[in-house]
């Protein structure tokens, strides 16, 4: 449509867009407010917008008991986190391959998460959070690595087999989860793998594979064949050419795909609900908060909801461009 020049109409457009933005964030805004109130304020019949904020709900949610030296411990943890983030940010200026630094930072994060429950008396919610992290990170790493290989092969191979695999994968992606979940449940029970994070991760990888190979294939299609062919003329075999020439160029596409995989793994409720009994992930844990009769559940549920949302919002704020690009790429290419 031709651009609108009329200033009044332009103002109207912004008005509608602002209203729509408010509508989009209203539930999050209200829940965040509720999570900072005490039980009496949260259950007030007229909504309170000005009140003394308290973090007690978050403490109740994450901690079994508040330690005496909480201030010092908290300060130390924040300091370590800041150092790790700074390391990741300046990784490229180090005199070694920056991937070593990233792996080092990742190891540091793992160590910190391991130490926390030893020095602070954390509640179950922390365990669910760690479960979610483990499942999400492993799903993303496994799914994207094997998906990259397959997506690349599918973009370069012209045989009918490749097409059949693609179409079959698309069909499987569209099928209701229930068709896979129940056999997994039965197989898990029969093999003793039920309630393990391993089964959940592998299931998520499989369920996510069709989407991953389709998306990565469409990105690989944009990269000219001549690139790896010239590397192969220079003596590299196909795998080396793929690893050294194609993957570095593909990095933005890989990040896009990884983001969608991350959202899928972090969000999955049905699979996690059926395949776990005590090793819950966050969505399963949070679903338990709904519909309690206890008036205290509102504040606790709000704190849980906000706690689960913050990590994902931070990730998306960093990678919003790639997310939108991924959505658009999937759309324009069908």
């Amino acid at each position: 449509m031709q651009p609108i020049r009329n200033p009044v109409a332009k103002l109207g457009i912004h008005f509608v867009l602002i209203a729509f933005s408010l509508y989009s964030i209203l539930p999050l805004f209200w829940t965040a407010l509720q999570s900072l109130k005490n039980v009496r304020q949260a259950n007030s019949r007229t909504p309170l917008f000005i009140f003394e904020a308290t973090f007690a709900n978050y403490a109740d949610l994450w901690l079994e008991s508040t330690p005496e030296n909480f201030g010092r411990v908290g300060f130390a943890l924040i300091a370590v986190t800041v150092v790790l983030i700074l390391l990741a940010l300046v990784a490229r200026y180090f005199p070694m391959p920056s991937s070593y630094v990233y792996w080092g930072v990742l190891a540091g994060v793992a160590v910190v998460f391991n130490i926390i429950p030893r020095i602070i008396d954390t509640a179950e919610f922390y365990d669910y959070f760690i479960n979610t992290l483990i499942v999400t990170v492993s799903t993303v790493i496994i799914s994207v690595s094997i998906g990259c290989l397959a997506g690349y092969a599918l973009s370069r191979y012209r045989g009918i087999t490749g097409l059949i695999i693609l179409i079959a994968a698309l069909g499987f992606r569209a099928l209701p989860r229930m068709a896979f979940v129940l056999p997994f449940f039965w197989l898990g029970r029969a093999t003793g793998l039920h309630d393990t994070l391993f089964l959940l991760t592998m299931t998520l990888v499989a369920v996510n594979q069709p989407f991953t190979i389709w998306m990565l294939r469409s990105f690989f299609m944009d990269i000219p064949k001549e690139l790896e062919e010239s590397a192969m003329v220079d003596g590299a075999n196909r795998f080396t050419a793929f690893q050294k020439v194609i993957v570095p160029i593909m990095w933005p596409g890989i990040v896009s795909t990884a983001l969608f995989t991350l959202l899928l793994a972090y969000n999955e409720f049905l699979l996690a609900r059926v395949l776990t009994q005590s090793n819950w992930t966050l969505p399963v844990a949070i679903a338990q908060f709904t519909g309690g009769e206890d008036p205290g559940h509102i504040t606790l549920a709000s704190a849980a909801a906000v706690s689960a949302t913050i990590p994902i919002v931070i990730v998306i704020l960093f990678f919003q461009k790639q997310l939108v690009k991924g959505l658009a790429a999937g759309a324009v290419k069908g």
């Binding site: 007030s44 959202l263 679903a287 709904t290 909801a305 949302t309 919002v313 997310l323």
Partner: peptide
């Protein structure tokens, strides 16, 4: 802002939506 409903965990989004309609909700 507009992307937010898409990235929030569906279970959490539902919970937040429901909060608005609880007796104490907005």
């Amino acid at each position: 802002f507009v992307l937010l409903p898409f990235i929030v965990v569906p279970v959490v989004g539902t919970l937040m939506f429901k909060q608005l309609f609880e007796p104490s909700g907005l």
